[in-house]
Computed example of a mutant assay.
Amino acid sequence: MAQPGTTRRPEITIPAHDRTVEQLHDEAFALRQTMLRMASDKGEGYIAQGMDIADLLAVVYFRELNFDPNDPEWADRDRFVLSTGHYSIALYAVLHRIGYISEEKLDEFGLNGADLALSTFDDQPGVEITGGSLGHGLGQAVGMALGYRLDRRASRIICELSDGELQEGSVWEAAMAAASHRLDNLIAVIDCNGIQADGPTVLDMEPIADKWRAFGWDTREIDGNDVAALVAAFDALRASDGRPKAIVLRTTPGKGIPTLESRERAHFVRVKADEWTSLRAELESNRG
């Protein structure tokens, strides 16, 4: 809950945060284009996950977050925590769009010794935590949210995590802590794409939304690839009512590219050299 003496929430500083749903849809499409470019000469990677959270990142970065595009370390910034570090391609794409990553660095994604590794490192401006081992992002986000409260900063933390990651007990420990501390400056967005390393998620975690509600979180469940639904969900969760917030996203791995959407093993996609042209054509034809 807001604390006495909390400074007024600053105005969003990146241009055009009042974008329409159609403009946000265009941003998501641009992110998918960028991800294809980043992956096209690599032949493999976590492409399907990047495609499925493009809509989320468009809404988060171009509508929800307060940050300074000229100062990644601005003390009063809202923070986006990517718990699934292997989704790095999507985060790098949006950081490129806002000016934190250059064209030259973007083209080095995933190469040996490059700054932009296949899993995130927090030495890259705009990357809040080092990813890799799952189950730790929400705990760190809880610490950030509690720190903001103690410092009386009127800023928010948005933490992405995945359905496969919910099998980690540390996630639920963090969820309990957030509710106990009444961290209503924290929003968890759970990417439920139904996959993990070897195929479908191993454990049956359903009903996921009800579990978050039972842990004391104000929870919405939506189509995570519907930009209008994302906007409505974030708007509905703005109230400072003493509860942390959660949005359960039902997403499609490889969203926007039917060939990738239909692949049974989509966790770590392998693409033949002659397939990239057709994948780009599919994305263009399904811009909708």
Rank of each mutant, 00 (worst) to 15 (best):
L116S: 11
A229R: 05
R149Y: 05
W276G: 01
I89P: 09
L237S: 05
E27C: 14
D123C: 15
G5F: 07
R152K: 15
D52H: 03
R182D: 01
H136F: 10
Q23W: 07
F109Q: 09
G164Y: 00
L150W: 06
E27A: 15
H136K: 09
S162D: 08
G194H: 08
K272S: 03
D26G: 01
K272M: 07
L150V: 10
D191T: 07
A145M: 07
E165M: 06
G110R: 15
Y46W: 11
G5A: 00
G126R: 14
D210C: 05
E165N: 07
E282A: 00
A114R: 05
A39S: 09
T277Q: 04
Y46R: 10
L91H: 14
Y61K: 14
N185I: 05
F109G: 08
Y46M: 13
S162Q: 09
S40E: 14
G147E: 05
I129Q: 12
L260M: 04
S240H: 14
L24S: 00
K105S: 11
A209S: 14
S102F: 12
A175V: 11
I158D: 07
A93K: 13
W74P: 07
K245H: 12
D151Y: 05
P258K: 06
A228C: 06
H25F: 04
R77L: 11
V248S: 09
I187G: 01
V171N: 10
L118E: 14
P125I: 06
P125N: 13
R238H: 11
A214Q: 08
S83D: 15
V248Q: 10
A117G: 13
R97P: 00
L183Q: 02
D78Q: 15
D55K: 10
V202H: 09
R152H: 06
N112K: 14
H136G: 13
S88F: 12
T20A: 01
D26E: 15
R280T: 00
R213T: 11
G164T: 01
C159Y: 01
E104Q: 15
G85F: 13
D107G: 08
E282G: 05
D123G: 08
L111R: 12
V248W: 09
V94L: 13
R182L: 04
A266W: 04
I187S: 05
H96V: 00
P15C: 01
A30P: 03
G110Y: 06
G224R: 03
L186T: 02
G45D: 06
E284H: 03
V189G: 13
D184A: 02
D55M: 11
P4L: 01
M176H: 06
S285H: 02
P125L: 11
E108T: 15
S102W: 14
N193S: 01
F215S: 09
N193V: 09
H17A: 12
L150D: 00
N185E: 00
M205V: 14
F234E: 09
R287P: 02
S88Q: 12
G85L: 10
A175D: 07
E261F: 06
C192H: 05
D107S: 14
H96L: 08
E168I: 06
I257V: 13
V127I: 15
V142T: 06
L237C: 09
T120L: 15
G147D: 00
Q33F: 03
E128D: 13
G288E: 03
R213Y: 08
I195T: 10
P4R: 03
V60D: 12
I14H: 12
